[in-house]
Design a protein around this nucleic acid. Sequence first.
DNA 1: CTTTTCTCCTGTATGC
DNA 2: TGCATACAGGAGAAAA
Length: 289
Amino acid sequence: MPELPEVEVVRRGLAGHVVGRTISTLEVFGHRVARRHVAGSADLSARVAGTRIEGARRRGKYLWLVLDDGAGDRQGLIVHLGMSGQMLVADPAAPDPKHLHARFRFADDGPELRFVDQRTFGGIALADLDDADVPTTIRHIAPDPFEAAYDRTAVIRRIKGKDSAVKRILLDQTVVSGIGNIYADEALWRAQIHGERPASSLTKPAIGRLLDHARDVMAAALGEGGTSFDALYVNVNGESGYFDRSLHAYGQEGRPCDRCGTPIRRAQFMNRSSFFCPHCQPVPRRGRG
DNA sequence: CTTTTCTCCTGTATGC
DNA sequence: TGCATACAGGAGAAAA
């Protein structure tokens, strides 16, 4: 549920609180959190201990810390928040919260870093970095709309070539990353496109406008500290953003559309909820766009 | 190869 | 009050 803006809020917090510091120990609790680290949690802890955090990076919903072991070897510590993951900076004397899955202690004996995750869809893992300092294990994740590597024209062309529902494609992180259910619905509302329209039925300019709306709505959300529709999304200090006040579609079932007044409708799509204005975003007829 | 469905997980809300 | 059920949904595995 944390999407690009919420993850960026966390990245900025990490940049301010842990970059430049040296990790003394990493404790991993339970078997779930390091499941993507194939060599296991003991290996993960051993490799992370003693490294210095050189940077905090992000692509889409993926975060990673660039770690330097001081001997010329650099690795990426990937952090994915999943549905409910939190990275919290805390006083080491503060009691452990429920659902604490990992704890980073630092050589300076300053505040520690905790990975807390109620639903345990998130996790941490180490990976090699490529020449651009992107972990090699997330090379299948496309650049997000804020990256220099984002090729808007190529993304439009790729989307135009697909017959799947356009919302499904917005959520496909291998096409463009960072967009989840909330910002997909918001971008579709802004673009006045129904998410079940086949992508190939949209004109290239319409696809371009949709992508630009997705970028713009995520930028606006970031400007307000992210969306806190769920109280689980917080920055590293445990504080929520307030972009949920600015949502036009997501979670607005029954409320009048801010553009035309028609009640916002909710429908099941891909086993998730989709919110849309039935007037501004007409439902496509089956078999055509 | 591409596309779609299933699965992982637990706290909260709702219905009987 | 208790118990069952629905729901939130990112992403990778599995299936089609």
